[in-house]
Amino acid sequence: MTEFDWSEILLRLGVATLAGGVIGLDRDLHGKPIGPKTLGIVGLSTATVVLLAVQFAEPGKISDAASRIIQGILTGIGFLGAGVIVRESQRFRVRGLTSAACAFLAACLGIACGVGQWKIVLIALALALVLLTVGRPIERWVHRLFGGNDDPI
């Protein structure tokens, strides 16, 4: 059994909460239905469960139990994402896919924080912020270039 000290627990849970919150802040700034509080809690909760499971494994290893916990988290987070996507709106359009993907990402970042994979967390968070920042303008440019649908929504 691996016993983590207080500073390690604070680091892993704090970074997971912060990473989820940063992704949520982008969604909130764009007026989307999921924000920093929700995605911060997603990151925190996934990191908490994974950290708990990792404590019972050999150092540096992910046990079968931890693997099953991670699988359960990723399955369960799909329901949260579905709740963001499936809602009645005018013309019954599918909306909220990016917000649902951000909930999934917050969960993945929480898992990575829970197992202490800091390089993965940093790179994934940086790439996500780049995509969320410049993704829409690039989509519009490509649609204009190739004559696709330039839907502003």
Rank of each mutant, 00 (worst) to 15 (best):
G20V: 05
G21L: 00
G21C: 01
G21P: 03
V22T: 02
V22M: 01
I23R: 00
G24V: 04
L25R: 01
D26Q: 07
D26P: 09
R27H: 06
R27I: 07
D28H: 06
D28G: 04
L29N: 11
G31S: 08
G31H: 08
I34L: 02
P36K: 00
K37H: 03
L39I: 08
L39S: 06
G40C: 01
G43S: 09
L44D: 04
A47L: 09
T48Y: 05
V50G: 09
L52N: 11
V54M: 12
V54Y: 14
V54W: 08
Q55T: 14
F56K: 11
F56C: 07
F56L: 12
P59V: 11
G60I: 15
K61F: 14
K61T: 15
I62V: 15
I62T: 14
I62N: 08
D64P: 07
A65S: 14
R68F: 08
R68D: 13
L74P: 09
L74K: 04
L74M: 13
I77G: 05
I77A: 09
I77M: 06
I77F: 12
F79Y: 10
F79C: 08
L80Q: 08
G81W: 02
G81L: 02
G83Q: 05
I85V: 11
V86T: 10
V86M: 11
V86P: 01
R87T: 07
R91C: 12
F92G: 15
G96A: 11
G96C: 12
L97P: 12
T98K: 03
T98H: 05
T98G: 08
S99T: 15
S99R: 06
S99K: 10
S99C: 10
A101W: 06
A103P: 02
F104L: 06
L105C: 03
L105I: 03
A107T: 10
L109T: 09
G110H: 03
G110Y: 05
G110A: 05
I111H: 05
I111T: 05
A112M: 07
A112R: 00
C113I: 04
G114L: 05
G116W: 12
Q117K: 02
I120M: 13
L122I: 01
I123D: 05
A126Y: 03
L127A: 10
A128K: 00
L129E: 13
L132I: 01
L132Y: 00
G135L: 02
P137V: 03
P137K: 04
I138S: 06
I138W: 05
I138Q: 07
